[in-house]
C-alpha cells in the first residue's frame, strides 16, 4: 500500500515480509512505473539461489540500447555472499535506468545483508501479514476504495468475518464487490448476498458465549468453528478453561485486589471485570455440573464418537442447564 503513495521508481527497492500479495504488489508497482517511464523497459525475474556475481554484472552493466531495465530478485536471502556484496555496492552506486527489486520473505536469514542494504539507503516496502482484525478491515476499505467503490466500517468487518484473514481472498472479494455494487457503495446487504457464513471462529468465542448463558449463539459459533476446521479438542479446552477460571473466581476470598486475583487466576487484569460479569448467574453446584459435562464431552471426542459436533452441542446444552440451575 505504501508503494502506491510514493514514486516507486527508485534504483533499489527492498520488499520485506511474508505476505506474498503485498510483496507482489510492490514488485508490480515498480514494474508498472518503469513501463510508464519507458514503454519498452526490459523486465527480468530471477530467484536468489540461481543468481551469480557474473550474472548480476551482466544484468546491471549499462545496456547498449539504453532501455530501462528492471531486475527482480526473489528470495534474496538465498543469494551467494559475492552477489550480496555486489548488491550492496550497487545500492551505493546505482546505474542509470537500472532498477533492482529485492524480495525477502522476512525472517532472520540473510539479516546482515538486509541491514547493509538499509544502511545504503534503499527504499524499503514492508509486506507484513495483517493479523489484527482492525488492520484487515482497513485493508478491505482501502481495496474497495482503490477499485473505485466505497464501503463502510461495518460492511468491511462483516466481509472479514465471512472470508477470514487471507489477504488475497479479501482483495479479490473487495474488487468483486466494488465492481458489482450498483452505485459503487458496498453495504452490509451486498456483502451478505455474496458472502455468507463465518471464518476463523476460535474456541474461546464459543466458550465465552456458553458461560454467558447465550447458548443459542454458542451453538451457532460452535458450528462455524467446526465447519471451518477448528479442532473439537480445542473447543473443549476453551470450555474447560473458561469454566475453571470462573469456578476459581467464585471460590476466591472476598476483598482480594483485582491485580492479585488476576495473577491467581492466570488472566490479564482487565479480564477480571468481564469474568465477574460472566460469573453472574452461576452457582458453585452449577459450575461443578458444567465442568463434569465438559469432561464427558472430552472423553466422547477422544474416544472417537462418530459425531463430535453432537458431543459438543450436548455439552453446551448441559452447560446451559447447569447455569439455569
Amino acid at each position: 500500500m505504501a508503494a502506491r503513495t510514493v514514486d516507486p521508481l527508485v534504483p533499489v527497492t527492498l520488499v520485506v515480509g511474508p505476505e506474498t500479495l503485498l510483496a507482489e504488489r510492490a514488485v508490480a508497482a515498480v514494474v508498472r512505473a518503469a513501463r510508464r517511464a519507458q514503454p519498452d523497459a526490459d523486465v527480468s525475474e530471477v530467484t536468489g539461489s540461481e543468481m551469480t556475481a557474473g550474472g548480476l554484472a551482466e544484468h546491471t552493466s549499462p545496456s547498449l540500447f539504453a532501455t530501462a531495465r528492471v531486475l527482480v530478485i526473489h528470495d534474496v536471502q538465498n543469494v551467494p555472499d559475492a552477489v550480496g556484496d555486489a548488491l550492496v555496492a550497487f545500492a551505493h552506486e546505482p546505474v542509470d535506468d537500472m532498477y533492482l527489486v529485492l524480495v525477502h520473505p522476512g525472517g532472520v536469514k540473510a539479516k546482515k545483508l538486509l541491514e547493509r542494504l538499509r544502511k545504503a539507503g534503499v527504499h524499503e516496502v514492508k509486506a507484513e501479514r495483517l493479523t489484527k482484525a482492525d488492520d484487515q478491515v482497513s485493508f478491505v476499505r482501502s481495496e474497495v476504495h482503490h477499485a473505485g467503490g466505497r464501503i463502510d466500517e461495518a460492511a468491511a468487518r462483516q466481509l472479514v468475518e465471512a472470508v477470514g484473514g487471507d489477504l488475497r481472498t479479501l482483495a479479490s472479494a473487495a474488487s468483486q464487490l466494488a465492481s458489482d455494487a450498483p452505485s459503487g457503495v458496498v453495504d452490509q446487504q451486498l456483502v451478505g448476498t455474496y458472502f455468507e457464513g463465518r471464518a476463523d471462529v476460535k474456541g474461546w468465542v464459543v466458550a465465552d458465549r456458553a458461560v454467558e448463558g447465550k447458548t443459542g449463539a454458542a451453538i451457532e459459533e460452535l458450528r462455524w468453528a467446526l465447519q471451518t476446521g477448528t479442532d473439537p479438542v480445542l473447543v473443549i479446552g476453551a470450555l474447560a478453561t473458561a469454566l475453571r477460571t470462573l469456578a476459581r473466581l467464585s471460590g476466591a476470598p472476598r476483598g482480594v485486589r483485582d491485580a492479585d486475583l488476576a495473577r491467581d487466576l492466570g488472566v490479564p487484569p482487565w479480564k477480571i471485570r468481564i469474568l465477574r460479569g460472566q460469573l453472574r448467574g452461576w452457582t458453585p453446584a452449577g459450575l461443578a455440573r458444567a465442568i463434569r459435562a465438559v469432561a464427558s464431552a472430552d472423553l466422547a471426542v477422544k474416544g472417537g464418537v462418530n459425531d463430535s459436533t453432537h458431543a459438543l452441542t450436548t455439552a453446551l446444552v448441559r452447560i446451559d442447564e447447569a447455569r439455569s440451575g
Binding site: 479438542v233 474447560a240 469432561a295 464427558s296 474416544g303
Partner: peptide, 12 residues
C-alpha cells in the same frame, strides 16, 4: 487411558 485431558478429567 483413553487419552482424555488429565486436568479436566481429574477435576470432574
Amino acid at each position: 487411558m483413553a487419552n482424555a485431558a488429565p486436568l479436566l478429567t481429574l477435576e470432574s
